[in-house]
Write a protein that binds this DNA or RNA. Structure first.
Length: 276
DNA sequence: ATGACATGATAAA
DNA sequence: TTATCCTGTCATA
């Protein structure tokens, strides 16, 4: 579930629910007992997202900053569940519950990182991240420079959070298809126009994903009228991700996949001019 | 009941 | 490169 669009969407929706509110925090799990106790009864003064990381600035009951920051990274299968009212009992896996008095309850489970850090800790995390296409302050030149520096295949560079923050396995496959690029192309050999196109497309696709909560990358023009109803099926809403052996939406050639560095990548042999 | 798998990332070897 | 951590869901038994 969680690529950058999901994280920014959580930030936006949870901002509405939590910022300026007094929040009860608790955990049934030993792994975050102390952290939850520390946050319990405080206020949320702001929520920020950078790539796949979420930062919640904490305040005292009057709203004055305490210097505590809740840092969350969902990893591969972390997830939030929000309940407007009458939350169910938390599952065993619920690491943290945030409860707004008279407001929603948010359960967090499965996350790879849930910790209390400091504002300086935010800087330390962000220092390891490349520009985030969903942030207004993002500098695309840093992305371009990161690609020029890498001899690894461009498909690996796109998953490298130090090169571009927030791209995951779905978006990388779809971005490379839409750019018409062979995933095996050495990153430094991707020409400047293509790099700019990938960045712009990342901004467009992740923005769309943030708004809808889903990753839909196929352009309607690429699907014949007869097959348009198929777009309801999730695996038809993307050009290549998890579509191995299915016909390419543009040219009908069967999509292929392979596994570099234990992350499957998909591509159209014809549209992306594969050399392999 | 058990196992495979998932849109992630890190540390160790 | 492999092992490991995080949890829920779905398929198979």
């Amino acid at each position: 579930m969680p690529e950058g669009h999901t994280i920014h969407r959580h930030a936006r929706l949870q901002r509405t629910a939590l910022v300026g509110r007094r929040v009860r925090a608790w955990s049934l799990q030993g792994r975050f007992d102390a952290g939850a106790a520390r946050l319990d009864g405080g206020t949320v003064t702001g929520i920020e997202a950078w790539g796949k990381h979420l930062f919640y600035r904490w305040g005292d009951p009057d709203g004055d900053p305490t210097g505590d920051v809740l840092h969350v990274h969902l990893g591969l299968f972390g997830r939030f569940r929000t309940f407007a009212a009458d939350p169910p009992p938390p599952t065993d896996g619920t690491r943290l519950a945030l409860v707004v008095d008279g407001g929603p309850t948010i359960h967090l489970a499965g996350a790879t990182t849930v910790e209390v850090i400091t504002p300086a800790g935010i800087d330390a995390v962000v220092a390891r991240l490349g520009p985030d296409p969903l942030r207004r302050d993002a500098d695309p030149a840093r992305f371009a420079a990161a690609l020029r520096r890498r001899s690894a295949p461009v498909c690996e560079a796109l998953l490298d959070q130090a090169a571009i923050a927030g791209i995951g396995n779905v978006y990388r496959a779809e971005l490379l298809f839409r750019a018409g690029l062979d995933p095996d192309t050495p990153a430094r050999e991707v020409d400047a126009d293509a790099v700019e196109a990938i960045w712009d497309d990342a901004v467009a696709l992740l923005t769309r994903g943030e708004r809808s909560g889903r990753i839909v990358t196929v352009e309607p023009a690429d699907v014949g009228r007869r097959r348009r109803s198929d777009l309801r099926r999730r695996d038809e809403q993307r050009y290549v991700y998890k579509r191995e052996d299915r016909p390419c939406h543009r040219c009908g050639t069967p999509i292929v996949s392979w596994v570099p560095r234990s992350r499957t990548v998909w591509a159209c042999p014809r549209c992306q001019r594969l050399r392999r």
